[in-house]
Amino acid sequence: MNGTLFIQACLVGLLSYLGAVDCPWMYGVVGGFYILGRPLVAGLMCGLIFGDVQAGVLCGLAVQAVFIASMHTGGTSNTEITYASYGGIGLAMATTQNPAIAVTLAIFIGQTFGLLFYNLRMAGFSYYNHKAEKACRELDKRGLIMNQIVYPQIVTFLVRAVPVWAAIYFGKVAVQRLLDVVPVTITDIITVLGGVLPALGIAMLMNMLIKKKVELIYFCFGFVMIAFAHLSTVALVFIAALIAYLIFNMSGHNGQNQDDSSKVAVDTADEYEDKDLF
């Protein structure tokens, strides 16, 4: 029994619950899924837990590149990013601290156990939904809170924190043994794959944003500005914002008198700044 590893695995398990899409405690998805659940942040957290922030961030960086465009739309998820982040980075930090290993473990865990647990939970929560609906019809306020929040959260905690804890606590020896026997060619392939896989996430984003093939020119423009002109991302964001704004203005002149309505929208946007409401 390894006391330190036990506690480290517990902490990573807890974070994998807090960073989950259905965990409410970090101000919903704002602080949970979209902050704690991101691999880059998970890398920092695992780095703090395992006492090597630099190695943790490097692992997080590598995994984040693969999941940069991870999408979670309409409840369907193409990969379970929280299991992937904390399972993959946590296990890598417990063993080799090698970023390429973190990527491989993250993808493996996210695409297999992660998606399996996620889909089982998404199907199983219908049970609590029905009980919550019944509570609404019967004006059972306690029943509504228990079935909409308390019980589902206990289940979520169990199906997230426990497997991640077990993966790290029991998986450490197995992963280390596996790494000792894997031939060099395989680790080479894994390293190359780490550089190739970000293409998947980006391609999925492109699929969502690009409606007409000619719009690919915007994408190529961004690519060229980084690859040829070596701009920083911050600089590119400002240039992109300028181009987007020009297009916004031009589309107004082509349309009817849309300018007025957009001006109203801007004016009212200022109004919201007042502190009356809260």
Binding site: A199, L209, E215, Y218, M225, T233, L236
Partner: peptide, 16 residues
């Protein structure tokens, strides 16, 4: 449009 340009840059800096 903003998103497409930024993603283009992103793919240049992340895909290795």
């Amino acid at each position: 449009v903003l998103g497409m340009i930024v993603i283009g840059g992103l793919s240049a800096s992340t895909i290795a």
